[in-house]
Amino acid sequence: MREIRQSAMVLLVGEQPAPNLLPVRHLEPDVAVLVYTDYTHRTAENLRRLLETSCRCLLHKVEAYDIPRARDSLAHFLEENVGGFSLIFNLTGGTKPMVLAAFELAHRRGAPFVYVETRRDRTVLYVYSISPQGTIGLEKQESLGTTITIDDYLRAYVGEYDKAEGFAPGEGGAFERAVYATLEPHVDEILPNVKVGGAIEIDLVIRQGNRIGIAEVKRGKAARKKRPIEQLATASAREFLGIHTRRFLILGTAWDESQESLRDLAKARDITVIELPSFDEKGSLSAEDREQLIERILERL
């Protein structure tokens, strides 16, 4: 009877953990080898804490920009720790020199490798093979099913985070509650009042499939200020929730010509502005505004 070899996936850890988290959850290797640098140790530790419940995790530090040293160091580590394993390399993350070093090792071994493409509407995994003659072939490409939760995403990017129970008092909280209640039946997951990085507050975190969005939900005077746009830009920076996070500014009013500069700023930051004027007018969301809210959120997610 043929012995089934254990599998190990080599992950090149960059600033964005999602392209490493998703393939591991999808392919379920026995071991994940997290290859990191001085700059990405925190991200590697976040991934280790998330992944070690489902597979054994090994961490290995390499030089970020020295190809020969990174290659030789990784080759030695793999031989010592997973020498008899079936290897697959994920070449999505890391620096370009790290990718070249890992690709050379994959090519030497004839080991398959994968690449993750994050599209607007889905995440696609490309699986490549290397023939005995050294020719690269695309074996398959597939859309990844849902493999993460909001908690997974937040812990992968920021480690620990805080969340408040319920909504703020007053009309601002009432608007947040109305938006939450409208979206909750139509998205896979939604979480209110999250705090990351100790001081950055996010009104809503929304998940549809593997795609994550964050929203600032403002009405009245707060809806006419620049601060919510700055808050979204900060929360989705590389060092916090990352460049793959969709951003929404949900307003309980309609902007007029005096807010054109805010509209331009939001557009420049790739923030989707959703105006729901019925709430400031009547204290509740009209059927038309509820429909618009659902449609605009699902359009981006």
Rank of each mutant, 00 (worst) to 15 (best):
residue 1 M to P: 08
residue 1 M to L: 11
residue 1 M to K: 05
residue 4 I to M: 03
residue 5 R to P: 12
residue 5 R to H: 09
residue 6 Q to E: 15
residue 7 S to V: 05
residue 7 S to F: 04
residue 8 A to T: 12
residue 8 A to H: 11
residue 10 V to Q: 11
residue 13 V to G: 07
residue 14 G to Y: 06
residue 14 G to R: 04
residue 16 Q to L: 13
residue 21 L to H: 08
residue 22 L to P: 00
residue 25 R to W: 14
residue 27 L to S: 06
residue 29 P to K: 02
residue 29 P to Y: 02
residue 30 D to Q: 09
residue 35 V to H: 12
residue 35 V to R: 13
residue 37 T to V: 00
residue 38 D to W: 08
residue 39 Y to R: 14
residue 39 Y to L: 11
residue 40 T to R: 02
residue 43 T to N: 07
residue 44 A to H: 04
residue 44 A to T: 05
residue 44 A to M: 06
residue 47 L to C: 09
residue 50 L to V: 07
residue 52 E to T: 07
residue 52 E to H: 12
residue 52 E to I: 05
residue 54 S to N: 12
residue 55 C to T: 09
residue 56 R to V: 15
residue 60 H to A: 01
residue 60 H to V: 11
residue 61 K to P: 03
residue 61 K to T: 06
residue 62 V to L: 15
residue 62 V to R: 12
residue 63 E to N: 14
residue 64 A to E: 15
residue 65 Y to L: 08
residue 65 Y to C: 03
residue 69 R to S: 15
residue 69 R to N: 12
residue 69 R to K: 13
residue 74 L to E: 08
residue 78 L to G: 01
residue 79 E to V: 08
residue 79 E to P: 02
residue 81 N to L: 09
residue 84 G to A: 08
residue 85 F to D: 00
residue 88 I to V: 12
residue 88 I to R: 09
residue 90 N to G: 11
residue 90 N to T: 09
residue 91 L to I: 04
residue 91 L to K: 03
residue 91 L to F: 03
residue 91 L to T: 02
residue 92 T to N: 08
residue 98 M to A: 09
residue 99 V to F: 02
residue 100 L to R: 02
residue 100 L to H: 06
residue 105 L to G: 10
residue 106 A to K: 04
residue 107 H to R: 10
residue 108 R to T: 04
residue 108 R to V: 02
residue 109 R to Y: 10
residue 112 P to G: 12
residue 114 V to C: 14
residue 117 E to Y: 10
residue 120 R to K: 14
residue 120 R to Y: 15
residue 125 L to C: 02
